[in-house]
Simulated scan of single mutants.
Amino acid sequence: MRIGIPTEVKSGEYRVALTPAGVSVLKGAGHEVLVQAGAGAGSGFEDEEYAAEGAALAADASEVWQRAELIMKVKEPLPEEFGYFRPGLLLFTYLHLAAAPELARALKAREVTAIAYETIQLPGGGLPLLTPMSEVAGRMAVQVGSRFLEARHGGRGILLGGVPGVPPAEVIIIGGGIVGTNAARIALGMGASVVILERSADRMRYLDEVWSGRIGTLMSNPYNIAQAVRKADLLIGAVLIPGARAPRLVTDEMVQTMKKGAVIVDVAVDQGGTIATIDRVTTHEQPVYERHGVIHYAVANMPGAVPRTSTYALTNVTLPYALEIASKGLERAIEGNPSLKLGVNTHCGRVTHRQVAEAVGLPFEPLT
């Protein structure tokens, strides 16, 4: 199979879908790899490194999209890329279609088979292709939150860990999954006071055991969320429902009760956001805006700011699935791999993931 790696076009996105080592693996299995010139530059990979592993270099994106049977990307295609869609094309990337109905309709209309990294799901519920980027985003959420708490950015002017005689910042994390636990790890390491709101009692017991009671846990319900939000210096939204739009758990009224200069980082913004006042997606170039005196950070591709780490981590988990698709073909690959089957969001003009279909208002038609 011919696999294409175009340059990412999203603002501030420096990741690339495949490392040169990944090219070597695919070439070793008998596949062709076509890489757009300069695609890896943002992650520190030169064209010569790809060529040395057997990749062919394409001058522009149109050549990659037209010649490839399978396109591997990092982020969802933008409207300027919709013209490359064609029947039978395989697209393997983060899609987050619940928050992108226009893209879902375009994929359906052009009969693209779109496989979303974020909806490939293991039998136990794990999301293997989302996990590494969730780890990165969770850790980054505290770093960027700490930065925007500085007075020069309009924040409260407080140090996350405080100093002797001065209390630390209050970090409130909504969601105790991969993002939330990684955010808690960094916040705790920086000396902050940390509380996680989580709806699973079993998960809260686990978190309490892991950190030996050094973080607080609260059952996630409207009352507890409202009380916690009011106290927050840094509020992190870390809720994910695979394939579905993120639930709005923090209301506009709750945000109005927050301290002036507090900071919100909503990692769920690429799924629509879990904070009501997150009503726009920001970029790495202009990452924040102010609402009700609170700083809002709503960058949808946070790991793009640390592209080398992120590209390595992403290739580690996507490559085995890409190899399976390329070597077996889609039908055989999903027949033998139920987790991969859950990743198929659109196929032959149908929306084949129930939660995506419900979120974008299109008919759900299961894969046969």
Results as ranks from 00 to 15, higher is better:
7 T>V: 14
10 K>D: 11
12 G>E: 08
12 G>W: 00
15 R>H: 08
22 G>C: 15
23 V>M: 12
25 V>T: 15
33 V>Q: 01
33 V>P: 07
35 V>P: 14
40 G>W: 10
41 A>V: 12
42 G>V: 14
43 S>A: 15
47 D>M: 12
52 A>S: 05
59 A>E: 03
65 W>Q: 07
66 Q>I: 10
69 E>G: 04
69 E>N: 01
71 I>V: 14
73 K>V: 08
74 V>Q: 05
78 L>G: 10
78 L>C: 13
79 P>R: 01
82 F>R: 00
83 G>H: 03
84 Y>C: 11
85 F>H: 05
85 F>K: 00
86 R>D: 08
87 P>Q: 06
87 P>Y: 02
89 L>N: 00
90 L>K: 13
91 L>A: 02
92 F>M: 09
93 T>A: 15
95 L>W: 00
96 H>A: 09
96 H>R: 06
98 A>G: 08
101 P>H: 02
102 E>L: 15
103 L>H: 09
103 L>V: 10
105 R>V: 06
110 R>P: 09
115 I>Y: 07
115 I>G: 07
125 G>D: 09
127 L>R: 01
127 L>C: 07
127 L>V: 05
128 P>G: 09
130 L>K: 01
133 M>C: 14
133 M>F: 12
135 E>Q: 15
136 V>D: 06
139 R>M: 14
139 R>V: 12
140 M>N: 08
143 Q>N: 11
145 G>S: 11
148 F>Y: 15
150 E>K: 11
151 A>F: 07
152 R>P: 07
154 G>T: 04
155 G>I: 15
155 G>D: 13
158 I>N: 01
160 L>W: 06
160 L>M: 13
162 G>F: 00
163 V>W: 03
166 V>I: 13
167 P>V: 11
168 P>D: 15
170 E>F: 00
172 I>G: 13
181 T>L: 15
184 A>F: 12
185 R>T: 10
187 A>I: 14
188 L>M: 08
188 L>A: 07
196 I>D: 03
197 L>I: 08
198 E>D: 06
203 R>Q: 09
204 M>N: 14
215 I>E: 08
222 P>L: 11
222 P>N: 07
222 P>A: 12
223 Y>P: 10
235 L>P: 11
237 G>Y: 00
237 G>V: 09
238 A>K: 03
242 P>N: 06
244 A>S: 10
244 A>C: 09
246 A>V: 06
248 R>P: 03
250 V>W: 04
256 Q>I: 06
260 K>C: 09
260 K>H: 13
268 A>L: 06
271 Q>A: 05
272 G>S: 03
272 G>N: 03
277 T>K: 00
277 T>A: 11
279 D>A: 12
291 R>N: 11
293 G>K: 03
295 I>K: 10
303 P>Q: 07
308 R>I: 13
311 T>L: 15
311 T>S: 08
311 T>E: 14
313 A>F: 07
313 A>K: 02
316 N>W: 04
319 L>V: 00
322 A>E: 05
323 L>G: 00
326 A>S: 06
334 I>Y: 11
337 N>C: 14
339 S>Q: 01
340 L>I: 04
345 N>S: 12
347 H>D: 10
347 H>R: 13
348 C>L: 13
349 G>K: 07
353 H>S: 10
359 A>I: 09
361 G>N: 03
363 P>F: 04
363 P>S: 01
363 P>M: 02
364 F>M: 05
367 L>C: 13
